[in-house]
Computed example of a mutant assay.
Amino acid sequence: MTNNLPVFGKLISENLSLTTRQVCNTLELLDSGATVPFISRYRKERTGSLDEVQIAAIQEQYDKLKTISKRKETIRATIEEQGKLTPELQERIEQCWDANLLEDLYLPYKPKKRTKAEIARQKGLEPLALKIMMQRGCNLDTEAQKFVRGEVKDKEEALAGARDIIAEQVSENEEARKRVRRVFERTALITAKVVKGKEEEGDKFKDYFDFQEPLRKCTSHRLLALRRGEAEGVLRVSISPAEDED
């Protein structure tokens, strides 16, 4: 039985609006090897008469939390090897049970291949990137010219390298990633267009030849149809935030 059982029980009970006792007892039964139908039929006194659907939901969330727990171990070990595991960061990792947010925490420390941003840093362009990010009204051409030396041939290359550094920093910024997710949750549009020349072949997807609607309103059957049309090469499907979103 996992040492995280009390934590898992609390998290799952909150997510599914069940009592902690019901969930923890169910987790113990699942850990002992009991199946969902068996628990539902013969262990009602332990679960508070949970049905199969509820027990299956508990099992699904339990599996996800166990996966996250294992991922945490890998992340902690990797960051610790780098000598960058501060008490604050360790606490944030411990308290995080959202897979996406956990990866956001890890991203700045995740081993990566030699990126454009890393190449730009090696050329000494990080100070230029920082000046641009500070947005203090400096003349970019003048500032970029100061970095034209060594491997940096001209100001255009200097600015391009600075942009690469800024792009990487923003993409790895936890708060920026949260904001982007919130924008997508509120405003994302799913759009489909027919691939030119596929009109006749893809007639069964004609309802989606020129289609757009908010992603949050897109029903599961429409989403499946769109993805099927895309897989068959009939539709081009994209998901993007509304253009007028600040």
Rank of each mutant, 00 (worst) to 15 (best):
A192N: 10
F209Y: 13
S240Q: 14
E60N: 11
K155Q: 10
E88R: 05
E172K: 15
R46Y: 15
T2P: 04
V194K: 12
A225L: 11
I12C: 03
I79S: 00
D246T: 10
R76W: 00
T115K: 04
D63P: 05
R236E: 14
I239N: 01
K217V: 07
Y208E: 08
L85W: 02
L159F: 11
A34T: 10
S220R: 15
Q90E: 15
L11C: 08
D154K: 02
N4G: 03
S13M: 08
K155N: 04
L102G: 00
P241A: 11
S240D: 09
T86I: 00
K217W: 13
G233V: 08
L102H: 01
L101V: 00
G83R: 06
D31N: 10
Y106N: 02
P127E: 06
I58M: 08
E73H: 05
K204C: 10
P37W: 05
L140E: 01
T2F: 13
T26F: 04
E88C: 00
E52Y: 02
F184S: 00
L30C: 08
Q169N: 14
T19S: 15
R236V: 14
E230R: 01
M134A: 12
T26S: 13
T19N: 06
E172W: 06
N139I: 02
K204F: 09
S69R: 06
K10Y: 06
I190L: 05
T142K: 13
L65K: 00
T74P: 00
E232F: 06
C96Y: 07
T142M: 05
R182V: 05
I239L: 08
I12P: 02
I165D: 10
M1T: 13
V194I: 12
E28R: 13
A117T: 06
A56Q: 14
E118R: 12
L30K: 09
E88L: 06
Q212D: 01
K178L: 08
L27P: 08
L18Y: 06
K64C: 11
I58Q: 04
L89M: 00
L16C: 02
K146P: 07
D98T: 02
E199I: 09
E199N: 08
A129L: 00
N4C: 07
G233E: 04
K113P: 00
D210T: 08
T2Y: 11
N100D: 04
R228V: 07
T20F: 11
T115I: 05
A225W: 09
K10R: 13
A56F: 12
L128R: 06
Q82A: 09
S32D: 14
T47N: 07
E60K: 13
E91L: 11
R177C: 04
E185M: 12
L30E: 09
V53W: 14
E94C: 00
Q59C: 07
V170H: 03
E88H: 05
A231S: 14
C24W: 01
